[in-house]
Simulated assay, not measured.
Amino acid sequence: MTADSPLVSLADLRAAAERIAGTCLRTPVVPLVAPDGRVPFAVKAEGLQPTGAFKLRGATNAVALLDDEQRRAGVVTHSSGNHAQAVAYAAHAAGVRATIVIPETAPAIKVAATRRWGAEIVMVAPSERHARAEKIAAETGAELIPPYDDARVIAGQGTVGLEVVEQVPDLGTVVVPVSGGGLVSGIAAAVKALRPDVRVVAVEPELAGDLAEGWAAGERRVWSVEDTSRTVADGLRTDSVGVLNWEHITAYVDDVVTVSEEEILAAVGVVVRGARLVVEPSGAVAAAAVLAGRVGGGAGTTVAIASGANIDPSLLAALVGTQDQTVV
């Protein structure tokens, strides 16, 4: 990022990779094997991060960039779960106090996981999460670490893209789940800087399709929290992509597609069986798009980002036990 451009640069991404190396894993790219032995695409296993999702990358980079005064004041954020855990973990590792504002609709498993890292938890109605976090920051001086609309966070998430380019020499397409847009912004910036020929496709649930609507209209759109809260992909319920994220998406992303609730749930079982990886519904959205044929074959290997693995065990067991083994 420079004075002339708000977009993160390759230098920003590489610097972030160095900062997070001691905390975040370099996750593997795993082939998804179909029942007939084909490998139609591969999966980037971000659920293997210590907090179970890619969010640790952005949070770790943001915490690492705090100055001494900010470290003393602590950090605050708002999240439905995965970013909450990430900030709590990164702050704990750095010896920084953290306050996390969580919507009351967040899965209990994610709330409990956030508490274990010593963060102070503030539960609010979903529509109040942004305002409450900002109020806490104003009252306490804590540094606000947004879930996605932040250059520090985007650069951290973009390290996923740096890794994919290195790991897959014949990379053809990267498919990325979208909520606020931090992950796809960073990945797209990294991929287009290193391999401009590679396609980057963003994927949303149909029930939280604000980006898809905005993409078609040529302008950023905002949905109601009531609408986006309908999707089973609880990590993708944000009402819109961020302002800075929209700029990255329109600059670097090639296409935006959506998937149904049924396709998301089916994809969880397919990924677990075919790639031997645990994945939550939010993390299965990219794979769902490939499985549903929404992402063109094209040349080279297609990699779907499995962004998280924080799923209720009973739901996981139910989805893995289904018999639908359809793979494109």
Rank of each mutant, 00 (worst) to 15 (best):
P103H: 04
E163D: 14
G118A: 11
V256H: 13
D150F: 12
T159Y: 07
P28I: 12
E213A: 11
A284C: 03
L48K: 11
A189V: 02
G296C: 00
V122M: 10
A59K: 07
R115D: 02
E226R: 15
D227C: 07
V272T: 13
S9Q: 09
G95I: 05
G47I: 06
Y89S: 11
S224T: 15
A317W: 08
R38D: 03
R14H: 09
H130G: 07
V63L: 09
I264P: 02
V241H: 14
L315D: 03
S80H: 00
A11P: 13
G214D: 03
S127P: 01
V320E: 03
A306E: 00
L171I: 07
V191P: 11
V111I: 15
T77V: 05
F41L: 04
G81A: 07
I100A: 05
A3W: 15
A62D: 06
R132E: 15
F54L: 06
A287S: 15
V279T: 07
V279K: 02
G300P: 06
A189M: 04
R276P: 08
P196T: 10
E263N: 12
G297D: 08
T301G: 01
A42N: 04
R276N: 13
G81Q: 03
T99D: 13
P169D: 04
A45R: 02
A251H: 09
V225A: 11
I102S: 00
V270C: 05
L316G: 07
V320S: 07
S260M: 05
G161N: 08
I305T: 11
V272I: 06
G47D: 03
V176R: 04
T173N: 03
V29D: 07
Y89D: 03
G218S: 09
S314D: 10
A266D: 14
R132N: 12
A284G: 04
L162N: 07
I311M: 02
V175R: 06
V271Q: 01
A275W: 02
D149Y: 15
E261M: 12
L32N: 01
L277D: 07
P147A: 11
V198N: 04
P205N: 03
A299L: 13
A106F: 00
S179V: 09
A208Y: 05
G209L: 01
W223C: 02
V222Y: 04
V164E: 06
G209S: 14
E46V: 12
L13D: 11
C24R: 13
A188K: 12
E128M: 13
P169S: 09
D67V: 12
L48Q: 14
A90I: 10
V124S: 03
V111N: 01
G209R: 08
W117M: 06
V203W: 11
A15E: 14
V175F: 06
D197Q: 12
V165A: 15
R152I: 01
V279N: 00
T302F: 02
V201P: 12
A112G: 14
R19L: 08
S314T: 15
V122K: 12
V290N: 01
A53R: 05
D254K: 14
V285N: 00
H248F: 07
A286D: 00
T23K: 10
G298E: 02
A212N: 01
Q70A: 13
A94H: 08
L25D: 11
D68I: 05
